[in-house]
């Protein structure tokens, strides 16, 4: 495959996967609207943090994580499982489409949705909630938040490799919503008991949120390296789980029937 053609396939695959999910209101509306509405409600309107701990600033980071997590989990987890069940993945596998184009299109779609949510959160924060950060903090926060696409997409991939299409949305929700809650994305983690705070140490969303909070100086105080090591390690574990799932079904997409 020539380089020109390869680039064209990667771009078109990403373009059409993005349009496909954009036209799916059951996906696009919750994924885009929930973080914004929750942030407005809990972070801005019901601002119970007081002046010592400005909640609108704290929650900008945690709802940013929430906004990245949703599209990554749903697009990879539910999207992959559904496309394997309908057979479209198998059909694409019989064509000369490079497998990388399919996966990079999924990552790109998750990134665009995530970036859209983060941009909207920033606009609300800066203009409606009077969040004041240094310029470098805005940029660093964007960078940290978007980097979360990597571990969350691999978690989605691991789910999508194992579950059936029909149950995938339910299973993704069963992971997405409790993990968001327990990682302190909705309500600050320090409100929880020590036991629950310790439990959060196994959750990737917790470590990602702590990195985002570190940028604005509001994290729980654990070292950056701890969060990075856990996230990198979990990314590898998710990749292995995904690979085992694909092997179990005898290849990257075929089903036994």
């Amino acid at each position: 495959m020539t380089v020109d053609r390869r680039i064209r396939v990667y771009l078109l695959e990403a373009h059409y996967q993005f349009i496909d999910v954009l036209r799916e209101p059951l996906f696009s509306i919750p994924v885009l609207a929930f973080p914004l509405v929750f942030y407005l409600f809990f972070g801005v309107i019901l601002n119970f943090g007081g002046t010592s701990m400005p909640m609108q600033t704290y929650m900008l980071a945690t709802y940013g994580v929430f906004g990245i997590l949703g599209p990554a989990l749903f697009n990879f987890g539910a999207g992959l499982a559904t496309e394997r069940d309908t057979g479209v993945l198998l059909l694409k596998q019989t064509t000369p489409m490079p497998v990388g184009a399919y996966f990079s299109a999924k990552i790109t779609t998750a990134l665009i949705f995530g970036a859209t949510v983060v941009s909207a959160l920033f606009l609300i924060a800066a203009y409606a909630a009077d969040v004041a950060l240094f310029r470098w903090q805005w940029f660093a926060l964007v960078g940290v938040l978007l980097a979360g696409v990597v571990p969350f997409c691999t978690l989605g991939l691991a789910i999508g490799a194992w579950v059936k299409g029909r149950s995938a949305v339910a299973i993704v929700n069963l992971i997405f919503l409790p993990m968001s809650m327990l990682s302190g994305l909705w309500i600050p983690i320090y409100v929880f008991s020590d036991f629950m705070q310790n439990m959060a140490l196994v959750l990737p969303a917790y470590h990602h949120a702590q990195l985002a909070l570190k940028v604005i100086g509001m994290d729980s105080g654990q070292p950056i390296l701890l969060h990075v090591i856990v996230l990198v390690g979990q990314t590898f574990i998710f990749l292995i789980v995904a690979a085992l799932g694909f092997r179990r079904v005898g290849g990257f997409s075929i089903r036994k029937s």
Binding site: Y16, I19, D20, V21, R23, E24, D85, T86, G87, V88, L90, L91, T94, T95, P96
Partner: peptide, 18 residues
């Protein structure tokens, strides 16, 4: 081989939103 052949499989659908 994949570049020189085409296939119609028993699949229930492709992207319904496209």
């Amino acid at each position: 081989v994949r570049e020189r052949r085409g296939a119609m499989l028993q699949v229930s659908g492709i992207s319904g939103n496209l």
